[in-house]
């Protein structure tokens, strides 16, 4: 049981580290898709099948496609490389900050007395989730729907709106 969890964690963190350290943006996005798949595998391991399917649909399916389009729309040549990890002190400080946060969190978790309740894998059926979403959480669902609508319309307006120094016939 734990071996599977450790394997999932190693794959997820490994692909995330690789994605954050690659120079090519395309490689980063593709590697991060692997990392999100690892998170979905964790959800499946924990028994939250619906969350796993939502993760695969939204992250691996939709968000990665949107990111790929953004990468392809904003690069200037075929071999455009991201400015790598900033030279010298900035990357060092960033890694120090990340390491400090990880150290604090991991030591707090390891010292705390978080005994896991010995419970069988909880079974939450989709119909149970549906009745919860339509019953006690209906207002939240509506608010999230309105938020998504407003955010997507705003994104369209931001991305499609004119303005800016667009040179007709100039370099794209």
């Amino acid at each position: 049981m734990n071996a599977v969890l450790v394997l999932i964690a190693l794959v997820t963190v490994g692909t995330a580290v690789a994605a954050m350290s690659r120079r090519s943006l395309l490689h980063s996005v593709l590697l991060l898709t692997g990392s999100w798949t690892g998170v979905a595998a964790f959800y499946l391991w924990a028994g939250a099948e619906f969350a796993a399917f939502a993760q695969v649909l939204i992250y691996v399916g939709a968000i990665s496609m949107a990111l790929l389009f953004a990468v392809l729309l904003t690069r200037r040549s075929r071999v455009d490389l991201a400015p790598g990890p900033a030279p010298g002190s900035r990357a060092l400080y960033a890694i120090l900050a990340g390491g400090a946060v990880a150290g604090v969190l991991v030591s707090a978790v390891a010292r705390g007395s978080l005994a896991a309740a010995r419970s069988p894998t909880p079974a939450v059926t989709v119909s149970q989730l549906g009745s919860l979403l339509m019953g006690p959480y209906a207002a939240t669902l509506l608010v999230v729907g309105v938020l998504l609508t407003v955010a997507l319309i705003g994104a369209v307006v931001l991305a499609a709106g004119g303005g800016g120094p667009e040179k007709p016939g100039g370099a794209p």
């Binding site: 734990n2 991201a82 990340g98």
Partner: peptide, 30 residues
């Protein structure tokens, strides 16, 4: 280490990787 602690360590490390990446890179997509 209990499974809950393993899960929390996993998420802590993932959070730290994301934090370091967000601070280190200067590309806004990254």
């Amino acid at each position: 280490m209990s499974p809950l602690q393993l899960c929390l360590v996993f998420s802590s490390v993932l959070f730290a990787v994301g934090l370091a990446g967000a601070l280190a890179r200067s590309n806004s997509i990254l």
